[in-house]
Design a protein around this nucleic acid. Structure first.
Lengths: 354, 354
DNA sequence: CTGAAAGCGCTTACAG
DNA sequence: CTGAAAGCGCTTACAG
């Protein structure tokens, strides 16, 4: 029924080994097939519509030409594609396509098995972690197992920057510096920060707040602690997360700014979704943005550009980061070598909100 | 190095065949392994950390436990994950996970090969087609080839409803009926339609316009042709698409409504992105929505709920549609059978814009 | 209930 | 430059 390599060999009057070599010129032997034989085999294979069996190739060569893709959150690995991860997948996918690799979405507990059983040749892990992380021990054990086996994997926006694992991460410090440069240029002086209001904060938000604080100090601008709204406080209880969105933090944070009459001229938000929530409160209460208070985001989610006012933010080059992760894996597959770390600068997008 | 089935067999004092049967209870033989042997083999395998080789299983059994996922646009198959497709992937992925299947992102020209060479056991295709489709012949040849091989595939929001291919599609007629019901209930009487302004329209938008027209006629409401803004006209040249977004159509369409002073009290848009563009124009020109003119969308993209005003629209249950597609494929893999067609009703989301 | 043997379709040293 | 032979690690009739 299905044409196999021996059918092609017979029809072409050559051996299966020769057909194999025609189809895999980069094999161990170095290319030593005459051009005439090669063209002939190719023509016969074409005519018979020969397609090499994937399972047989995989069994024999151990190469799957497949890269796994997993999202990792506080609870587990999963194959859920979020707004962020879809753009990263597009970056990984486009890069992989060029090298004839495919992308396999990896579910929960399977990833350690898949890196052993030849299901994939490498793994991209996108992680958004919080400060307290109940799965940390298992996570680290998994990474260590892969690392010990010398299995190529890359963490995108992960943490564990101290560990010797390949990683591609957004540079929160650079992003915050760019926001600060804009702040200075536009003459804002009274700066506030608005992050998550829960009791287990995203590590990226914690970092961003820290870099803002440090940057302000360096610039000699005042740091008013009571204008840094982040996590629970003596007056404010922890706000539980609501669904998949963190708009609620922005909404409630802006409410606090408003009701307490905080004297802020630019409110720096930990992420675009928080900025969106802040804008929603401002809209509803006729607070003019940026007239009365400017608002900045971080990340540049797709809707930021279409809101009214559109959000001034820094853009994470998610596709590029995905492509980089793939390149790091390919480099390791091809030439081995140790771990590679990449920091990617986000790009300031000056729009209407600040 | 890696533990294989013979290692487990030896350590457990049984044959490889027995180990295989323990791991594949649903094999042809029917389960005839004693409980004692089974437990023992399982314990030994666990201790040795045995993981069956994927390539070997695939070569022998021909089952990949993998479902391909492809997006198809006017130009080609690709693995680009859009805002829509990500939610469909999430539906396919969650359903697949339950049955221990994985999702493989399929690139361009590979899909016909992959359905032959055991790379995947089924394929989900998400298609957004336009009226004139330069790739139609190749597309149909591909579908026919898969169909002839009896290879399971499902078209999501495809076209070709007349052909005997499995399909899951949103019910545009039901969606438009729900919008009309809302229109009548709220007392809107002067209805306009705003679709794409290009010269090669999405088939879904064409359908939606048709169902609106028919529904208005049935309700005895006036159909003012000059308020149906769709495609080029004698006065209006075709507007080329701009990037990945169709907001521009909504913006320009609302401009036309405004500048010509069209007497419309509810503007039905062909999709949420178009509605977004219309709202943007209205915002910029201080046209009150829904006070002066109501606006409705179609699809329910994620940002629709967060705009100001939020968009009244009908929601496509994209995750459910993905899950259905997977179920149809599984049914075919397990029990064979012919093609299955499913129409899915969208759900009215009444928000602020109408 | 269990095992011996064949074979899935390739690739890869090796020999010539 | 080409081919014969072995073998990757499983599963599957078949025999017992």
């Amino acid at each position: 029924m299905k044409i196999k390599i021996s059918d092609v060999a017979k029809a072409a009057g050559v051996s299966a080994a020769t057909v194999s070599k025609v189809f895999n010129p980069q094999g161990s032997d170095n290319i030593k097939i005459s051009d005439k034989t090669k063209q002939h085999v190719l023509a016969v294979a074409e005519k018979l519509n020969y397609m090499p069996n994937y399972g047989a190739k995989l069994l024999r060569s151990g190469k799957s030409y497949t890269i796994g893709f997993a999202t990792e959150n506080d609870r587990s690995f999963d194959c859920f594609v979020s707004e962020y991860t879809r753009e990263i997948i597009n970056g990984v996918g486009a890069a992989a396509y060029k090298d004839n690799y495919n992308v396999l979405l990896i579910n929960g507990k399977d990833y350690l098995e898949y890196c052993e059983n030849s299901r994939m040749d490498g793994l991209v892990i996108v992680g958004y972690y919080r400060d307290r992380d109940s799965q940390e021990k298992e996570r680290l054990a998994g990474y260590k197992a892969m690392s010990d086996k010398n299995f190529p994997f890359v963490l995108i926006n992960g943490i564990y920057e101290d560990k010797d694992y390949s990683a591609v991460s957004v540079d929160n410090e650079s992003g915050m510096k760019q926001i600060l440069e804009m702040i200075v240029r536009r003459g804002y002086r009274k700066i506030g920060f608005l992050g998550e209001l829960g009791d287990n904060l995203q590590r990226h938000h914690i970092q961003r707040e820290k870099f803002l604080r440090e940057g302000l100090a360096q610039l000699g601008l005042p740091v008013n602690e009571s204008y840094f709204i982040h996590g629970p406080s003596t007056e404010r209880k922890a706000v539980p997360p609501s669904g998949n969105y963190s708009h609620i933090y922005g909404f409630l944070g802006m409410k606090e700014v408003h009701e307490k009459g905080m004297d802020i001229d630019c409110l720096v938000c930990g992420g675009d979704e928080i900025a969106m929530g802040a804008l929603k409160y401002a809209n509803e209460h006729k607070i003019s943005v940026p007239g009365q208070i400017a608002v900045t985001g971080f990340d540049d989610i797709p809707q930021s550009e279409f809101l009214n006012p559109s959000i001034t933010t820094v853009k994470q080059p998610l596709r590029d980061m995905g492509a980089m992760a793939f390149e790091i894996i390919m480099e390791k597959i091809r030439h081995g070598g140790g771990s590679v770390k990449r920091k990617v600068s986000p790009v300031l997008m000056e729009r209407q909100s600040a």
